[in-house]
């Protein structure tokens, strides 16, 4: 099965690990994610103002390109891209006047876009559709590992784009169980990592990272898994900073969800560049027989 794929900018730079492992995992289930021949930055953070349509053009332009490929499904890996594309799609889908203005403005780019031509799908939902039996059948390195799933914000909020119950999501827990891991229950899995405030207000990120990591470790986590390159930076790089400043701080390695799957499914470890991780995951992965 083929589906369109929108990588977004970070998947081509700091989150290469996420892309290479996700695409390789999907190949195992005979799914070929075809990168859009032409795509743009989605704008990262959905603009919540009602009266400025210009701010929606970037994600909509990408959706128009996706429509032109003829593929019904569009895969996004990055949680921020997923959120922005879905909300832009809803923004014009729910209001005829907005739709008309946008279509007039983008007439020369293919126009006539209603917003519902493309189904934007995230990797977790896609894996859920593949089903636990097929996932289980692919396990080549069975592992006993306590994994803390970290959802963050953008796959769950607002409700209109949530991939699962925004207050008590279970999708990642179920997938982890399907591949033989033990999901760790801890209270901060849907809390914000403080996101882009790493630029202006890093103290908020420090406070959140410390809270999230400490809680996960106290509840027995040996590994933390994420689906957003910014969550990864905040939980991995900032965690390393905290560890340097506080000797007693207990760290936990942070992987993209698909990195863990790729290892369990026996895909080559070379798909990962573990050198990009600030909290080295290699000792844990070796101890667990995943490397």
């Amino acid at each position: 099965m083929e589906l369109s794929y929108y990588p977004g900018c970070t998947l081509k730079t700091t989150a290469r690990n996420f892309e290479t492992t996700a695409l390789a995992v999907l190949e195992l289930f005979d799914m070929q994610a075809r990168e859009l021949p032409e795509w743009y930055c989605c704008g990262v953070n959905f603009s919540q103002v009602q009266d400025n349509l210009m701010l929606q053009l970037a994600p909509l332009r990408t959706l128009m390109r996706a429509k032109q490929t003829g593929s019904r499904q569009l895969l996004t890996l990055c949680a921020m891209c997923y959120n922005t594309l879905r909300r832009a799609q809803q923004f014009i889908g729910e209001d005829e006047a907005r739709r008309a203005t946008i279509n007039d403005f983008m007439d020369h780019e293919g126009g006539d876009f209603t917003g519902d031509e493309v189904e934007i799908i995230d990797i977790l939902t896609l894996l859920k559709q593949i089903g636990p039996d097929k996932l289980q059948a692919r396990i080549t390195r069975p592992v006993s590992l306590q994994v803390a799933p970290y959802y963050g914000c953008l796959l769950l909020r607002p409700r209109t784009v949530a991939i699962d119950d925004p207050n008590n999501p279970q999708i990642m827990e179920n997938l982890l169980s399907a591949v033989g891991c033990q999901p760790v229950a801890y209270p901060f899995r849907t809390d914000c990592c403080a996101s882009y405030q790493i630029v202006n207000e890093p103290q908020i990120v420090h406070s959140q990272t410390k809270k999230i990591v400490t809680s996960a470790v106290q509840h027995g986590a040996e590994l933390l898994v994420v689906l957003c390159p910014l969550c990864h930076y905040n939980l991995d790089a900032v965690q390393a900073e905290i560890a340097r400043a506080e000797r007693t701080f207990k760290t936990v390695p942070v992987l993209y969800f698909t990195q863990l799957l790729a290892l369990i499914f026996g895909l080559p470890a070379a798909l990962n560049d573990f050198g990009t991780h600030r909290i080295d995951p290699v000792p844990t992965l070796k101890a667990k027989g995943l490397l």
């Binding site: 977004g8 900018c9 990262v44 953070n45 882009y196 990864h232």
Partner: peptide, 27 residues
């Protein structure tokens, strides 16, 4: 609301792009 020149070079080069772009979009 922010002055781009005040963002430390070290941070600018280290951060994933989405951190910077999201920050610009909000500020």
């Amino acid at each position: 609301h922010i002055n781009l020149n005040e963002i430390e070079r070290r941070l600018r080069e280290d951060l994933p792009q989405i951190a910077l772009i999201a920050n610009f979009r909000k500020n």
